[in-house]
Simulated assay, not measured.
Amino acid sequence: MMLDRRHLLLTFGAAALAGCGAIPRPEPIVGDAAFTDIGFADWTDAEPEYLLYPGDEIEVALPTAAELTRTIRVGPDGRIALPLIGQVMAADRTLMELSQVVSDAYVGKLVRPVVEVSVRTAGPINIWVDGEVRTPGVYVMAGDISAYQAVVQAGGLLPSAKAQSAALIRRGPGGSRMLKVIDVRAIRGRTDALRRGDIVFVPRSTLGELAAFFTQFKAALPIGFSYSINGANGSGFANF
């Protein structure tokens, strides 16, 4: 299922790459000198702690005040509404962090504000596919898919695509950004599944030019893949 392209987080304009000279493609190693000044963290495949997103249905339980327990969905703005304390930001927080925030908010209102937060139903798992594909956009993952399958879902590669120099951008530890260079044609059948908020970008130029492009537009890349962020051109809004 593809969302409206107006909501695409990254607007990688082909015109921005025009006029760039050919630069030899460096080895596809994260942390390569070509990406030194972009601010990407070292790549890790470690599973991060779950962060809440809009659309997640959660239970906020208060064992010492059961009448205040609520099953509630995180709103599009990332907030939830709770009795006595009102609006609380939930998105982009771990379950433990939200439990602590809510518990602190209830101090002075309850004698023993013990709070337990759990996920009942996870919301949509969105990924971004952009660049030299036939239908760039934001897609909802129906299950575990690879970068190659995501490109197929986006209509496949254009003849101008540099499939061997695609970029996979992912949220890393502590909200950092990680980038790995991949060949989307070489990972058919592999079980490396994309994760929520992943960005697959297929360029039409060399990797060196891609590095220059990322440097120029690094402000448009999501620092924390937070629940909402302005588009690269200052307009548009993307909700996870």
Score class of each variant (00 low, 15 high):
M2P: 06
D4W: 11
D4V: 10
A14R: 15
A15E: 15
R25Q: 07
G31K: 01
A33I: 08
F35N: 04
F40G: 02
D42E: 13
A46H: 05
E47I: 10
E49V: 13
L51G: 07
Y53P: 00
E59H: 01
E59N: 07
A61F: 14
E67A: 10
V74A: 09
V74I: 15
R93M: 08
L98K: 10
S99L: 00
A105S: 15
Y106D: 12
K109I: 09
R112A: 14
V115Y: 09
V115M: 10
E116T: 14
G131C: 03
G131I: 04
V133M: 01
P136A: 06
P136I: 02
Y139C: 00
V140G: 06
M141C: 01
D144V: 02
D144L: 09
S146D: 01
Y148C: 04
A154H: 02
S160R: 03
A161E: 07
A161D: 00
Q164C: 00
I169E: 04
K180C: 09
R188D: 06
D192H: 05
A193L: 01
R196T: 11
V200K: 02
F201N: 00
V202Y: 06
P203S: 03
G208D: 07
G208T: 08
A212Q: 14
A212H: 11
T215K: 14
K218V: 06
A219E: 13
P222E: 12
S226D: 05
Y227D: 09
G234E: 10
G236S: 03
F237K: 15
N239P: 00
F240Q: 13
